[in-house]
């Protein structure tokens, strides 16, 4: 099966200082791939490079076999990729309705489909309906994360990149948040690349895991293999 998203020997960094080097990752259709590593391992840099927020200094990123290095985030979004950024991916002064409207406008969702898309997301994350008209600044951390995921789903992506969605959330809330995403992955074949520090919780929903350290991949395998690897589990 060909990968929906892959990196080939990708290197990227800030101001000439490399953060990641020689990264080869392939995300398969309808797969949940968990990217694990400490702060500074280069996980977020890799996600930003995949989504066009950073240009790779070497190597290439491919989506459905097509090289996308140098394309803008909007162009990559139009190829069926969405990103839930690290932290709270919402604009505090905008209401949830406005965030959704802006998200759909930015990714070129046709006007005629927008109401239907919102209904679809509210069907997946029904709690959002309760605070659609509130500014994001008045929402709890969990509610903001839910809105961020909902906004990403509005473009009906085939590939979802999630950067540490568990930050600041209780494990139970994190699982509640991921459950509908997992359902979507199984029902609609969504491929998910999940960056997490909360390894035990992330592995519960992952099909495969990659461990990164100091900007390089140091391990790759199934979640059970990783759980059995005492040395790695102690580290992470």
């Amino acid at each position: 099966m060909s990968a929906v998203l892959e990196t080939r020997q990708v290197a990227a960094g800030y101001g000439g200082r490399p953060v990641i080097t020689g990264i080869d990752i392939a995300l398969q259709p309808a797969e949940v791939l968990c990217l694990i590593g400490h702060n500074g391992a280069g996980k977020s840099t890799l996600l930003k490079t995949m989504f066009g927020l950073m240009a790779p200094e070497a190597g290439e990123v491919r989506i459905n076999g097509e090289p996308v290095s140098g394309r803008s985030p909007r162009e990559i979004a139009e190829m069926g990729v969405a990103m839930v950024p690290e932290g709270r991916g919402v604009f505090p002064s905008l209401t949830v309705t406005e965030i959704f409207a802006l998200g759909m406008h930015a990714t070129g969702v046709p006007k005629a489909e927008r109401a239907e898309r919102v209904d679809w997301v509210l069907g997946i994350l029904p709690v959002i309906r309760e605070f659609m008209h509130r500014p994001a600044s008045t929402l709890s951390g969990g509610q903001q994360q839910m809105v961020s995921i909902g906004r990403a789903l509005l473009s009906r992506p085939k590939i979802l990149l999630m950067d540490e969605p568990s930050i600041g959330l209780a494990p139970k809330l994190f699982q509640d948040l991921l459950a509908p995403i997992r359902t979507l992955q199984q029902r609609e074949g969504l491929s998910i690349l999940l960056v997490e520090q909360n390894v035990r919780e992330a592995l519960k929903i992952s099909d495969r895991a990659v461990v990164m350290k100091s900007g390089q991949m140091i391990w790759e395998g199934g979640p059970d293999e990783l759980s059995d690897n005492e040395k790695l589990m102690e580290l992470y």
Partner: peptide, 10 residues
């Protein structure tokens, strides 16, 4: 609110 997030939105 957040210029970096604006880019993530596309």
């Amino acid at each position: 609110d957040n210029p970096e997030l604006v880019r993530t939105f596309g």
